[in-house]
Design a binder for these strands. Structure first.
Lengths: 221, 221
DNA sequence: ACTCCTGATATTGTTAACAATAGTGTGGTA
DNA sequence: TACCACACTATTGTTAACAATATCAGGAGT
């Protein structure tokens, strides 16, 4: 905790805080005082401020002047808006992936899906997201889409926010088996380099994900 | 320049720097030294650092450890990626706007287009973007779309980046008249609450904008 | 009991000095 | 001349102290 090498500190602190936030260890609305964190990480307030600003930049934290930062809390309306955004981006990702995919990329997807079917057989209703970066279907597609801007946005902003959204609203059961089937259909469209179909299927996939989330919330209360 | 009221300073500095960047007053690649800016704004390095980090967050500035910040420079490939992102987002905006538009919203668009036709008649080939926020077709649509996340992303990140991109690459002539016609078609789709058509037309509108930009770059060199 | 004011406390915004790193130029050597 | 080592300068990262603001508790007045 105490052996940072200068600028690494803010990166480390940022990642640490992000981890705590998206894992639900810090609850939405919880205040993130600078002095607390500073003493906690054995560092001055400067790097803490930097890290908090970065977290605010990626939407994991809200911060107001003279008030400070707190873990962002998503309303259901914001959740809907978020999924609408995700629908647009991931649709474009699927379209671009279908456009760019050559033999190598198709095999990569194929291998990934073969791995996933194993996991699904063991945990049929896992949420099926908290995997390593390069083992996630959506992120692999984003890589194949070969658009660094969109890839960045998805990996560094939308995905962390999505995890926070889920951990905030106590999503218990995923829809692993169904999601996997949809992934397969999307993959088939990509194998055929069918941009429009890939885009459409991905959009529906995201919509279905939102429906599951939304229904889960309605049922809760 | 010397009468800030605390936290206002970083907002003011941020906006000032942003203005200088997107107007082309600061050229791409130009270094933004902290001490220079600090003395220039009569403030210490702290707020300057904050402002630079925020600028980096919205993609107007790149910053590396121990090296500092410099105005972002877009390659042509990044320009393409940028327009792909914009296509996805603006398409979704048009779709949502078509879905949400009631009588009031339609009249708002109608009035806006009536204003624009006046401008076009005077300046048929103006770039037709550097208008006030609430007088811009795309931003008004984003407002009607009623998705704060997407609206934020467009107004605070994509649009500033777009202006930087244009000022970077010396876009001389716009395509005001043609763009206006396309706006009208999109508006008609929205009047009919035809989500799919509005989305499609908007996507083509953005693509056409990219083509104009791209051809202009090719011609230059 | 309730509201409003006031002062104490805690927290954030800002500053200037210090530490460490990147960039630069000079001199020596082959 | 080409090249490398080394010191020097300029710039960023970090820290601790100071300034200003928000929050909260307690009390006076109704």
């Amino acid at each position: 905790m105490t052996a940072f090498k200068r600028r690494l500190s803010v990166n480390f602190i940022f990642e640490q805080l992000q981890e705590h936030i998206i894992s639900g260890q810090y609850r939405p609305g919880q205040r993130l005082g600078e002095v607390d964190l500073a003493t906690q990480y054995g560092v001055s307030r400067g790097p803490i401020r930097d890290a908090l600003r970065r977290l605010a930049g990626v939407g994991l934290v809200t911060s107001a002047a003279n008030i400070g930062a707190q873990v962002r809390s998503f309303s259901l309306a914001e959740g809907k808006a978020f999924y609408q955004l995700r629908e647009a981006l991931e649709g474009q990702v699927a379209r671009l992936a279908a456009s760019n995919a050559g033999e190598q990329e198709k095999q990569k997807i194929e291998r990934l899906l073969k791995e996933h079917v194993q996991v699904i057989n063991v945990h049929p209703d896992r949420a099926y997201l908290q995997e390593k970066k390069d083992r996630d279907f959506h992120l692999v597609l984003a890589e194949i889409a070969a658009n660094p801007l969109i890839q960045n946005l998805l990996a560094n902003e939308l995905y962390p926010q999505l995890m926070l959204l889920r951990s905030s609203h106590c999503v218990v059961k995923g829809r692993g088996a169904q999601a996997f089937l949809e992934h397969q259909r999307i993959a088939e469209a990509i194998y055929a380099n069918d941009e429009e179909l890939a885009c459409l299927l991905m959009q529906r996939h995201v919509q279905a994900s939102w429906q599951t989330f939304f229904n889960g919330q309605q049922g809760d209360r």
